[in-house]
């Protein structure tokens, strides 16, 4: 019994070590979203191209990616070709043009190809705020009922898509056609 007490510091040390070791591999800049399993926030905003006014009803119906992007966002440029590829492969992607200048956004889409089914112009960042966006690019996965199921902060590259998002997206698609 007395011997066991001598082991206590070792046990404590191991406990702390496990915590700290796990901490090494955590990304503190990745925040859990408060919006998971909540409906996509209501909005009424102009489309980037054309005179349409878009609302949340326009993006509900099919599982989709909602990608928050901007021309001032350097990382979005890196992500763009990947989105193009995904769109070509049949993935439904909606864009939220976050706090951007409309002319630059149109130019960007004309220059780099437009992977978005619809593009919401959120010039003042109000939708971004409702979505809890704190930097671009951010991508939400919504299901067929417009419920936000996952959020990914950062650049979607081929690996992220393959290993992380593709299975999640596929699961949402499978929900529609079981």
């Amino acid at each position: 019994m007395r011997r066991l007490i001598l082991l206590l510091p070792l046990v404590l040390f191991l406990g702390v070590a496990v915590f700290l070791y796990r901490g090494l591999f955590m990304d503190p800049s990745e925040l859990p979203s408060a919006l998971i399993d909540k409906p996509f926030p209501a909005f009424s905003l102009p489309a980037v191209e054309g005179d349409r006014t878009l609302t949340q009803r326009d993006i509900i119906g099919q599982p989709a990616l909602v990608n928050v992007w901007a021309t001032w966002c350097v990382a979005c440029r890196v992500e763009h070709p990947v989105l193009n590829k995904l769109a070509e492969a049949g993935v439904r992607i909606y864009g939220v043009n976050y706090k951007d200048d409309n002319a630059s956004a149109r130019k960007w889409l004309a220059e780099f190809h437009d992977p978005y089914q619809l593009n919401i112009e959120d010039a003042r960042g109000s939708l971004g705020l409702d979505l809890g966006v704190y930097g671009a690019p951010e991508t939400f996965l919504i299901d067929k009922d417009g419920i936000i199921r996952h959020k990914f902060v950062g650049v979607i590259d081929e690996r992220v898509w393959r290993e992380k998002l593709a299975p999640l997206y596929q699961a949402l698609v499978d929900e529609v056609t079981p």
Binding site: L31, P32, S33, A34, L35, L129, D130, L131, G132, Y134
Partner: peptide
């Protein structure tokens, strides 16, 4: 703010 950004 918490409903959008969480307890963070």
């Amino acid at each position: 703010l918490v409903s959008r950004y969480g307890d963070f």
